[in-house]
Write a protein that binds this DNA or RNA. Structure first.
Length: 260
DNA sequence: ATGCCGTTTCGTAAACGA
């Protein structure tokens, strides 16, 4: 199966791109972030028409995540455990089964955390601590686990075209990077980095200052695979060309093929 | 550089993003 993640930066503004990409890439599972929509306003019919089941966890104005899958989405849960007071819609999780097995999959939108000298950065780190606790708990499941989404973390200097420009940014702080490493230490494999050691694997280019034209990109959208999922990893692709489409998202899709 | 650009909202300016 092909599992993809894409921060689409507004599902209503990106519906044409979303359907175009679903028809072209035809992932078995698509994890979407920043749908910027309430559940009732998500264009379910347009996606169902393409053969997908839909589960959303939206909110008004910003954030919001979704799971699209050709197979049924089972045991859907919404919200990252660990803080009942957190009302941001940044996590949705489900099980997808095939004839050959099943996968537990999450679509996550990790907080940006800027500026560093604000409560937002503390929220980001606390959210990552909750992510680590839940990711560890998920390892007790029998089925492989895929935690896919916009992590808002630049793991290493080679994950940015100009790393020196990110030293004061929440995405590249030692605390953010340490927690991303801690996820790896639990046993989760960064699928894209595992199959390609080179630079220039960017998944985001800012709308500003000609970042796309100058290839001033960063790699912040990740597919993190539990050991059981990593054992079934076949290949990874970045749909970079979508950044050149009309009215593009500032992120591009990343997908992994798993032998499941 | 409190800038650049894009989406959204109790809109026409401000919040949020990265």
């Amino acid at each position: 199966m092909t599992v993809a993640t894409w921060n689409i930066n507004g599902v209503k503004a990106r519906l044409e791109s979303l359907t175009r990409w679903l028809e072209e890439a035809s992932p078995d599972i698509a994890c979407l972030q920043e749908i910027k929509s309430v559940d009732e306003a998500f264009p379910v019919e347009a996606v169902e028409r393409l053969g997908y089941n839909v589960a959303t966890h939206g909110q008004k104005g910003f954030n919001g995540v979704a799971l699209l899958a050709k197979r049924p989405l089972e045991d859907v849960t919404r919200g990252l455990p660990g803080d009942d007071g957190d009302v941001h819609a940044r996590w949705i999780e489900a099980t997808v089964s095939t004839e050959r097995g099943a996968v537990r999959i999450a679509s996550l939108y990790l907080p940006n955390g800027n500026p560093v000298a604000s409560d937002k950065f503390g929220y980001k780190l606390a959210w990552m601590d909750r992510l680590l606790a839940h990711a560890e708990a998920l390892l007790a499941n029998d089925e492989p686990v895929v935690l896919a989404g916009d992590y808002n973390v630049i793991p290493e200097p080679e994950d940015a075209r100009f790393p020196e420009r990110w030293t004061d940014d929440a995405l590249f702080q030692p605390e953010s990077r340490a927690r991303h490493r801690a996820l790896a230490h639990l046993g989760y494999l960064d699928a894209q980095r595992a199959v390609d050691r080179s630079g220039d694997l960017y998944t985001f280019w800012d709308y500003q200052a000609g970042a796309w034209q100058r290839n001033n990109g960063i790699r912040i959208d990740h597919l993190m695979l539990s050991p059981g999922a990593a054992d079934r990893l076949e290949r990874v692709a970045v749909d970079k060309h979508t950044r050149g489409w009309p009215k593009p998202s500032d992120h591009v899709p990343v997908s992994a093929v798993l032998d499941i």
